[in-house]
Each structure stands twice: as structure tokens, then as C-alpha cells.
Amino acid sequence: MDQTELVAAARSGDHNAFRELVRLLEPRVAATVIGMLGHCQEAEDVGQETFIRFYNALDKFRCEAKVETYVTRIAINLSLNELKRRQRKALLFVDQPEADLENLSNREIVEIDRDTQTTVRLAVRQLAPRFRAVIVLRLIDGYSTRETAEILNLPIGTVLSRLSRAQKKLKIILEPVFEGKV
């Protein structure tokens, strides 16, 4: 069964069809949510909430969009909400480890002994949420520029300019990685 058929089966109450959808879509949702929030409990909660929202919206889903794109849209919106909540919390409480990881200096990111992938993930987390979202969707999830624009409900020109600015910043942060200093 393809994803559209699985949605139809899940809508008519087939529990196993929905389980299969979760299994198939977990990698995409995990890449999006962990790319946005980092590997933390909140990311897992947002991932879970993504599928619960999808389950609740099964009756409304008319397969006009691809299932994967639809679920990614839920995941990215919930991640952006979580980042707003994290920022509000960071304003109120000093000790917020996850928020602190989003405010490291370039030197802190590359100096501490980390593997390259962790360094790259930390570098992505230094981007403002709107820039991070385009990088995650376009470069990590591998959506086309047009699909990225559709998911974020933005004009293609805005996506292109955000991608360009985000890459410039990432290039500066990750310069030592390319020079082999990390």
C-alpha cells in the first residue's frame, strides 16, 4: 500500500495502517524536528504531537498535498512554536540548557572536542528560527526550493534569500571545520 492508501485505511479505522504511516514517516519527522530543536526530549514530544495532530486531521486530509509534505508542515510549525516557547522561557529563567546551546560563540561551537556532525548540528542551531527552517527543509530534508516555500508558506524569492544568508553564516561558523582545525 502506498501512503495515500494507508491514509484512507487509517481514516476508516485501520489501526495498523496508521502504525505503518508513523513507521514510514518517522525518519522525515525526526530529521525536521531534531534539525530544528536538537536531540532532546522536547524534540521527541514535538515528534509525537506531530503524529497526534496528523491522526486528528485524518478526516480533513484530502490528499491534495503529499502525505509527507503535509506531516512535515505540521512538524515544522510545531517546532517553530516550540522555539518561541523556549525563547520566552529563556527570558524568564536563566538556566535553560537547550536555549543556551543556541547562543554559543563561533569559537565555542568548534573549539570544544566534538565530532563533526555534532558541530554542524550546533552550528545550524545558531541560526534564527526562520533561517534554520529553510536550511532544515532544503538541505537536511532535501525538499526542493518550491516545496520548501510551500511548506513554509513563503514566496520562493524569500526562501532563496534566506538560504543564501543562512549559508553565509554557516560558512563563517564552520570555517575551522573546512580548514581541518576540528
Binding site: V22, E26, P27, R28, A30, A31, I34, G35, H39, A43, E44, G47, Q48, T116, Q117, V120, R121, V124, I135, L139, I140, D141, G142, Q167, L170, K171, L174, V177, F178
Partner: peptide
């Protein structure tokens, strides 16, 4: 840079998600 970012993807949550 783009390959490095693409390869940093984590594609699963904790087991039994």
C-alpha cells in the same frame, strides 16, 4: 558545506517511538 549539513541529519527518535 551543503553535504556536511545534509549528513548531520538524525533520522530517528528514541527506540519504540
Amino acid at each position: 558545506l551543503r553535504n556536511l549539513i545534509a549528513s548531520s541529519s538524525v533520522e530517528s527518535f528514541r527506540p519504540f517511538f
